[in-house]
């Protein structure tokens, strides 16, 4: 097992390297100049040149590339062009915010997905199944940002139930601990719902298929023949095996944990990775964009790895080669 993991990790290294190289060249060859930020207002044009020199944008591309590789090897992401602070600090600020949002969304996704899928599989062919299938499809087809806007308008503005933006209320830092967490929870409801709901529809369909496959198996028939009540057959025997493919979703969702919330973060002004990325892209903040790509690429690779391992752990039929 350990050997398998080590092998997979080593195999992932050139993958990340290739990913970073492609990103670097794509970004550097794009039009646009970060120093132009300084060209607005009554500024001496010479200043822009000096800024460019300070950023190291004067070197030829290959030289920049080699310098950058060296920096990456030492774990040095550099300083943000537009925020004037280490990229690591920016990520350190944003990552926890995104994680709390996406982890909860993932939980909602799986909990709701399993529920819908099971309901739909158990009642296969009935109107309950048909309605859940169509509803799930409907939810899955709604553009995320549109749902988010509608919820802000309905739940937040007209019903005045929940806050519409950000993570905390103003002055939240002066609240007692419990009230502080409650405040955070209120701010989480809408974005978590939007993020988790659509993917729950997909998970539900997945779960339904998986459960239907399992129910056909012999041992389920045996369990039924034994005279076990239906809920016990499904809940105890079938579920256990039907969950296996669903669990791998957890692994495959790892990159989603960091990068899946761009649009939702933009609508709800959630101070996470998505907003950092959008801002960095629009201001040509190369170090930030590269760091974000690196981190999330890393998550993809790690996620696939984790999915494989999880699968192997849960399903004894799979041998590790």
């Amino acid at each position: 097992m350990l050997l398998y993991i080590v092998k997979r990790v080593i195999a992932a290294i050139p993958l990340i390297f290739g990913l970073l190289t492609i990103t670097f060249f794509i970004i550097r060859m794009a039009p646009g100049d970060p120093a132009s930020l300084y060209l607005q207002g009554n500024v001496d044009p010479g200043i822009a040149d000096r800024v460019r020199r300070n950023f190291g944008l004067d070197d030829p591309l290959p030289v920049q590339y080699v310098k950058w590789l060296k920096a990456m090897a030492t774990g040095e992401f550099g300083v943000s062009f537009s925020k004037h602070r280490p990229v690591v600090d920016i990520l350190a600020d944003a990552i926890p915010n995104t994680l709390i949002l996406t982890t909860l969304a993932l939980f909602l996704n799986i909990a709701l997905g399993v529920l819908i899928g099971t309901l739909s599989a158990v009642t296969r062919g009935s109107w309950v199944d048909n309605i859940t299938t169509v509803l799930a499809l409907f939810v899955y087809s709604i553009p995320e940002f549109w749902l988010a806007l509608m919820l802000i308008l309905g739940v937040s503005l007209h019903l005045d139930l929940l806050p519409a933006a950000q993570m905390h209320s103003p002055n939240a830092d002066q609240l007692p601990a419990f009230a502080y967490i409650l405040d955070l929870a209120k701010h989480l409801v809408l974005p978590v719902f939007v993020l988790g709901f659509a993917s729950a529809a997909a998970t539900g369909r997945y779960m339904r298929g998986s459960l239907l496959d399992v129910i056909k198996q012999d041992y389920i028939r045996t369990a039924r023949a034994k005279g076990l009540p239906e809920w016990k057959v499904v809940g105890k025997h079938a579920m256990r095996n039907a969950m296996i493919p669903v669990i791998t979703i957890v692994g495959l969702s790892l990159p989603f944990l960091l990068g899946g919330a761009v649009v939702v973060e933009a609508v709800f002004d959630w101070p996470g990775m998505g907003n950092v990325l959008l801002e960095a892209i629009f201001s040509r903040d190369y170090p930030v964009v590269i760091a974000l790509t690196a981190v999330s690429g890393f998550m993809v690779v790690l996620g696939n790895l984790l999915a494989d391992i999880l699968y192997a752990v849960v399903d004894p039929r799979i041998r590790l080669e």
């Binding site: 990913l19 794509i26 646009g32 761009v262 892209i281 964009v289 690429g297």
Partner: peptide, 24 residues
């Protein structure tokens, strides 16, 4: 291997970066 590298690009991130940077 090439497919693996491309798959490692986080999809929406990648699309956003390319479209935003190369829109001119």
């Amino acid at each position: 291997r090439f497919v693996d590298i491309l798959l490692a690009f986080p999809n929406l991130f990648f699309i956003l970066i390319i479209i935003a940077l190369f829109q001119q």
